Measured scan of single mutants.
Amino acid sequence: MLDDRARMEAAKKEKVEQILAEFQLQEEDLKKVMRRMQKEMDRGLRLETHEEASVKMLPTYVRSTPEGSEVGDFLSLDLGGTNFRVMLVKVGEGEEGQWSVKTKHQMYSIPEDAMTGTAEMLFDYISECISDFLDKHQMKHKKLPLGFTFSFPVRHEDIDKGILLNWTKGFKASGAEGNNVVGLLRDAIKRRGDFEMDVVAMVNDTVATMISCYYEDHQCEVGMIVGTGCNACYMEEMQNVELVEGDEGRMCVNTEWGAFGDSGELDEFLLEYDRLVDESSANPGQQLYEKLIGGKYMGELVRLVLLRLVDENLLFHGEASEQLRTRGAFETRFVSQVESDTGDRKQIYNILSTLGLRPSTTDCDIVRRACESVSTRAAHMCSAGLAGVINRMRESRSEDVMRITVGVDGSVYKLHPSFKERFHASVRRLTPSCEITFIESEEGSGRGAALVSAVACKKACMLGQ
């Protein structure tokens, strides 16, 4: 009897593995994704193909990295998701002549009506938060230079001027797309009239992360975010950046690689679950690469896999709870928690219980395998993109072996128990001629924006502006 049951459990697990095998990517698959990513990057950089390229390769006008001589107080704003952060950054000489960066910050959550109302409502709310922060720190009387981390696709015309191309991540505030974001912020500050600010720089969160990590390690020339969304930036040779005049030196390019796949480059790798996630998203047909990796989508992918296993009578005796059938019910943090389970399955059992399920031991094991399959594919897909960037940098610099540091931020990278190990191992397999160091950014977005502002202020002083 026991043997029969054991055989049935083994057969069930084997069927589960057959279904989950769809998520496995072979090294040849990853090399294919990497080569296609490089081709799209090239198209994004070139003037004649930029418009139709899915990977936009947006110039950021960040050319210099901090040298350690900029000092002063800077205000930093960070808008990239449902939370908005205001930070005071003091850049100065530390002990023994070292450079020191001290920060104080406060988080504000953005109400739904500000995210989806008008641009005026959104930026009025942001300036209200700045006003509140300055009151708390008794700094209303000071006109501070301000660095703005704005983590949406922007076409820069200068370091302090950028046109919002399109909202992502659930934002829909009308009247912002096609307009200068810094102008919208300046107008809102003017409307309030109770404080003055000098907006000197606007950067993407990947750029802010790279600059913040450069402060720790001067070989950091790539910034990457794996959180709600997924994106990367890197220092490109100016001669390859056709959208900006000049051939000397390097400029940081914001790849906006989340949109890779929007022209069909990933079609052969998309599964039924991916198509369902895409169809029910706020932007169907867009940001397809990001939807395979980002935390906004990972939990939902797992939920759809679990429903398939229920329908195949391989999980929960073929019956799903009402909660499990509800879109968004299986949160991405559950994926991390399930994979963090120590082996007694308590954590998995508790999560499934909150979803109205009474799982068996085998159910718990199957749910864990589903989570591992989805998150491992995410790590491997992400590795193909980064390997594409790094191999490109090595080739354009004609280096036999390139040493490089990548600064990384984002909740999936930082909080998932195995993502970074799987990701690092896969990147290294795909970049055999590179020695890569990964560092995690601390308060990256805010500190990085302030350091970019410090560079901009120093330049302005040198130019006598």
Rank of each mutant, 00 (worst) to 15 (best):
G385I: 03
Q138K: 08
L307W: 13
N283P: 03
E242M: 04
V182L: 03
V62F: 06
L276V: 11
I390V: 09
P153Q: 03
A114W: 09
Y289R: 01
D73I: 08
E312T: 13
E245W: 12
G97F: 07
S383V: 05
L324S: 11
G464S: 11
A173E: 01
E96W: 06
K39T: 08
T376H: 11
F150A: 08
V101E: 07
R155G: 02
D3T: 06
G147M: 03
Q323N: 08
A173H: 02
D262K: 09
D278F: 04
A450W: 03
F23A: 05
E435V: 10
A11G: 14
G183F: 01
F150I: 06
I348P: 07
C220A: 15
A425D: 14
D4L: 13
G410N: 01
R63T: 14
R63Q: 14
Y297H: 11
A21Y: 11
D194T: 10
V277R: 03
E221Y: 13
L79Q: 04
Q98N: 12
V91G: 05
M393G: 06
G193W: 05
F330E: 03
V199C: 04
V277E: 04
D158F: 00
V33T: 09
N254W: 03
A378V: 02
Y125M: 01
D262L: 12
C434R: 05
M197H: 00
K140E: 14
V241M: 15
V277M: 01
S151R: 03
L164N: 02
S353T: 08
G388Q: 10
N166C: 09
E28R: 09
D400C: 13
H424L: 07
P417A: 12
C230F: 00
Y214V: 15
D3E: 08
Y273F: 15
Q287F: 02
A232V: 08
Q18F: 14
V427G: 06
E236G: 00
R369N: 11
D217G: 15
L2A: 07
V335E: 06
F152G: 03
P359I: 11
R327D: 15
T60W: 01
E442Q: 11
K414F: 05
N313V: 11
K420N: 07
G318Y: 13
I293P: 13
E237F: 10
N254G: 03
I110A: 00
R191P: 00
R43S: 09
A456G: 15
V71F: 15
L324P: 05
A379F: 00
G246E: 01
L451M: 06
A201H: 02
A259F: 07
F438Y: 09
D198Y: 10
R46S: 13
H218I: 14
R85H: 07
L306I: 06
D124I: 00
E268T: 14
A114K: 14
H317Q: 15
F438A: 03
P153H: 03
F195C: 00
S360Q: 09
E67P: 15
V455E: 06
R397E: 07
M462Q: 11
I351P: 05
L386P: 06
N254S: 00
Y349C: 08
R36D: 08
R429W: 13
F150W: 02
P284K: 13
D365V: 09
D78C: 03
G385Q: 02
S418P: 08
K56P: 09
T206S: 08
E14D: 12
E22M: 04
V310D: 06
C364S: 10
L271E: 02
F334E: 15
V427H: 03
K13L: 10
K104M: 09
N83I: 04
N180C: 06
G285I: 00
D187S: 15
H50W: 01
Q18H: 14
E28K: 09
R155N: 05
Y349R: 09
C129W: 04
G388C: 04
D113A: 12
S212Q: 09
L270M: 13
D4F: 12
T342K: 12
V310F: 09
V89F: 06
G328D: 06
V86P: 04
Q24K: 10
E216L: 14
R422Y: 12
D198W: 09
V182T: 07
R403E: 13
M8I: 07
V338S: 12
L309W: 08
L324V: 11
N391G: 11
